[in-house]
Each structure stands twice: as C-alpha cells, then as structure tokens.
Design a protein around this nucleic acid. Structure first.
Lengths: 136, 136
DNA sequence: TGAAAACTCTATTAAATTAGTAGGGTAATA
DNA sequence: TATTACCCTACTAATTTAATAGAGTTTTCA
C-alpha cells in the first residue's frame, strides 16, 4: 500500500509543477487545494527540500518551489525518497539491500525470483515517468 | 513491503510444489524446513485451504497438499489471497476498488495515473508466472 | 476401540509503523 | 519592525502485522 506521505508528496509536487509561473507557493495553499493536513504536509515538503527536489523562500511571499523542471524529475528518485525501497523485499532491493535471516539461499528462493521481476517492472514504470508525464 | 504472511505462504506453496509425490505434508515439516513459526504457518495454510489452493487430510499421516498442479496456479490469484490488493492505492484496484475521499477527480490525479501503470506492470508479472515458474 | 496424530478455531498480545497533532522557534521580507 | 511563513522537536492515537497460547475436533491406524 502506498503511504499517505508518498501520496501527498506526489500531489504536492504535481501541484507545484502545474503552476503557471515559478513563484513560491505557500504550504497552506497546497494543503487546502489538495486536501492535505497542513502540518503533515509541512514535514513532507521539508523532506523534499532536504533531498534536493524543492527550494523554499521564507518571509512574506515565501513558500516552496521546484528546483528543477518537471521533466527532469524522475519518479524513481521521488519514490525512493518518499516511499523508500521500490522492492517489496529487502533481498531484491538495489538501494536498500539486506539478506533474509530465514532464507538459506537467494538463488533458489521462489519469493526472491518472483519479487525480482516485480521490482524490475515497477522500476521500469518509474524510470519512464517524470513529473511532467503524470500531470494532466 | 511484502507481508510475512505472503512470503511464508508462497514458500509453503513452493515447498509443496517441489514434493516428489502428492502425499500430504505436515505443517511441522514445512515450518521447520522453511524456518517459519509453526502456529503462524498454520493460519496461513488454513486460509489457503479455504480459498481452494490446498487440500488437507487429518489424522495420522495427514497434512496439506496442492489441489492443482503447479502450472495451474497463477501468482495473480495467490497474491490476491495472501497479500490482498495488487494495486498500491484503492482507486486503481480492480478487485478492491474504492474512491479516495480527498481526490476530486481520478482522471486528473497524478497519483492515479502513475499507480495505474504500476498496477498493470505488476499484474503482468503475476499473470505470467505460475507456481511452477518460481520453483527452481 | 482407543489413543495418538494432526488439523481447526478463537482470542489475546507485543511490536512496529503510520498518520497526525501540538507548539514553540527562527529567518526573511515588505 | 512586525508580520509572514518556514523550521524543528516531541508526542500520541490508530492501525496493522506477526506472532502466541491454548483448547477443541476429527481422522486414522494399530
């Protein structure tokens, strides 16, 4: 299941990408238009800023804005930051790899074999979509 | 993240599919060989029996066995029973569809658009894999 | 026929994660 | 210089997951 954090983060990014100009948008505006708890959104935008997706401007007329153009923002990167691993099990994760305690051999593990394919297919979707692609 | 339930369920099915003959296998044997808590496995096998994947035989010499051949068991069905929806959000789920409270229009929703593709790609993987395909 | 083997079922619980809340602090701009 | 708006920490409620415990029932084989 997709976490609300990811869902809201994606919606916020899409909202910013849909702005006619590059002026900063206030948290309160995004929260209201996208039906998101303002405080929760605050923490999400903060993490998107710390990971280089967003810039922010303080003071009157401040807010958040995209640091890159929508077509430069890959869903792979966004998903990894918001949702974490793309793989459904750590033993097939590229960026968050861990061995399974219970599994004696990955190469003969059925779960491993199936989840490897699922990961690859998800990655292909994320790689072929930028923020631009998912805004209408 | 894949739940332990699904992981253990898949491993148990694979274990049964790898048996040389069709004799019932005891819960305790599967639990031990696959490093699974026996009681937890019990409830998983029970649900696989209730959903038509497994048969069981009671009494001495009893146990669980596959009701179909491994190549007749599609990962799509297994995943739906063990893990639930394949979609990451209810609004793109085929079998567990729900509208989002917060979203005014699915057709213009970025999350919807992206997750639809993810669902389709995952479905394709599950559809093209039977239990036979994932056992070594 | 009876005892052991093995499945069946209900209820409870501990741990982890998620989603959200509260409130104060800090920096920048008009 | 006052206001606006971001920044940060800590806490909490709800949910889900992964077990655990224990009693009960059915079947089979000797």
């Amino acid at each position: 299941m997709l976490s609300k954090k990811t869902k809201y983060g994606l919606k916020a990014l899409a909202f910013l990408a849909s702005q006619p100009d590059k002026k900063p948008v206030q948290i309160s505006e995004i929260a209201e238009k996208e039906n998101i708890s303002q405080k929760f959104l605050e923490s999400i935008l903060l993490s998107l800023r710390k990971t280089g997706f967003l810039g922010s401007k303080k003071g009157k007329g401040g807010g958040y804005y995209l640091l890159k153009t929508p077509e430069e923002i890959s869903m792979t990167d966004v998903m990894r930051v918001l949702e974490g691993p793309i793989a459904m099990v750590p033993c097939v994760s590229l960026n968050f790899y861990e061995t399974c305690d219970d599994c004696p051999d990955e190469n003969t593990c059925s779960v491993h074999k199936l989840m490897l394919q699922v990961r690859d297919s998800a990655l292909e979707v994320y790689r072929s979509n930028t923020l631009k692609d998912i805004i209408s």
